[in-house]
């Protein structure tokens, strides 16, 4: 019983912590994220398992986390407003030649991050970009000037 409660609380707390950490540009995990994931996961697992290191307890904890994940996915798909709170919304970083500086500062995104994403998509200069969008998974989508016309 204690494992189930600890697993549910641990899942909710980790979800909140990771969510408020903000998206960093780049969809792939960096070393910073690896450190966060391993450290946070390691700390939470200690409280979740407690002194009971049995296979039964481990299986129950995994099942609870799986069920919580399923529940959160259901809530996200069923209620769009909750989806926004849980996953965030895409944000426009560059719009028709203008940087959205407030959004960029708050999301800690720099123009070099946008250019890095642009180069990956075959765009050579900033002038070619009509829109740059910070997606919910942290990647930056580039919409080119010529393609949108």
């Amino acid at each position: 019983m204690a494992t189930i409660i600890h697993a549910v609380l641990g899942y909710i707390f980790l979800l909140l912590s990771v969510r408020v950490l903000s998206r960093r540009p780049g969809a792939q995990l960096t070393l910073f994220e690896f450190v966060l994931i391993f450290l946070m996961g390691g700390v939470i697992i200690l409280a979740t398992m407690g002194d009971d290191h049995s296979e039964t307890n481990a299986v129950c904890a995994v099942l609870v986390v799986g069920l919580m994940h399923r529940l959160v996915s259901y809530v996200k798909s069923r209620f769009p407003r909750w989806d926004e709170w849980l996953d965030g919304v895409p944000l426009v970083l560059l719009e028709q030649g203008k940087w959205q500086t407030d959004v960029m500062n708050k999301m800690r995104v720099q123009d070099t991050d946008v250019m890095a994403a642009a180069r990956e998509q075959g765009v050579r200069t900033l002038e070619q970009i009509k829109y740059a969008v910070l997606e919910r998974n942290g990647s930056i989508s580039i919409i080119q000037e010529k393609k949108s016309q």
Binding site: S22, V89, P90, L91, V92
Partner: peptide
């Protein structure tokens, strides 16, 4: 849509509320 041409689904009003919550 942004400027009635790109379907982004951005919601700045929500995002400002989120930053406050953060």
């Amino acid at each position: 849509k942004v400027n009635d041409e790109v379907a982004v689904g951005s919601d700045l009003e929500f995002q400002y509320r989120w930053w406050k919550f953060e």
